[in-house]
Amino acid sequence: MIWLLLLLLVSPAQAQPRSGYLDAGPDSRAMQDDDTANPAFLWVEQGKVLWGSLGCGGCHGDVATMRGVAARYPKYDAVLGRPVSLARRIATHRAVPDSEDMLALLAVIGLQSRGLPLAIDISGPARPSYEAGKALFHRRQGQLNLACANCHDDLAGRHLGGAVIPEGHPNGYPIYRLEWQALGSLERRLRQCVVGVRAVPWADGSRELADLEFFLGARAAGLVVETPAVRP
């Protein structure tokens, strides 16, 4: 009886999501598996420094108190009536000098949740945002007239040029991407997918992007946080 219930809970149409880690090649995986070889840890170290120098520790204590936080973001903010990303949550109560500093903070805060399952709450008033994000994920756009779902649901696991099309989950961000030769945000990754279909990317901070990222987080339920991941 309990088994039946569990099955119903975990297998609605879609099977267990598959992390992009499994679609990355052996070299990227090896880099992600070893913190002393993962260049993202240059940013993690910087994040630790900023945690002190920007005064975060003064209120929050050790950065380890952030364990579990990244797994809950994006999080629906009832006052604002929209989902907020972790970056926005930080920026709204503390000035962060530039985007590199923000990446470093996201890396060190995300790392605290590494291995924890994503836990995006889409219940109650958050539901419409989830639905709006889901609609965007399935909406065709751009000169190529492709929806995210065409690639990341229908063609996941197939090859696109040299790359395997992953399911498109956000559980490793910020990531060190070999193509960028740097750490980069989920927004940067999404911009490239949107430009790839010759559509105009959503503006940073837009409602659409917030809803889409919220949906992506919920869609990845069952995966654990991998921050900072390495991707080709």
Partner: peptide, 28 residues
Amino acid sequence: MARTLINVKKTLTRGEAFEIRLLIAHPM
């Protein structure tokens, strides 16, 4: 970002071969 990450075993036995591993933040 941080300038460097260096990983070396800090306590060693004489004659032991040990690895020096580093990452340097640089755009190259």
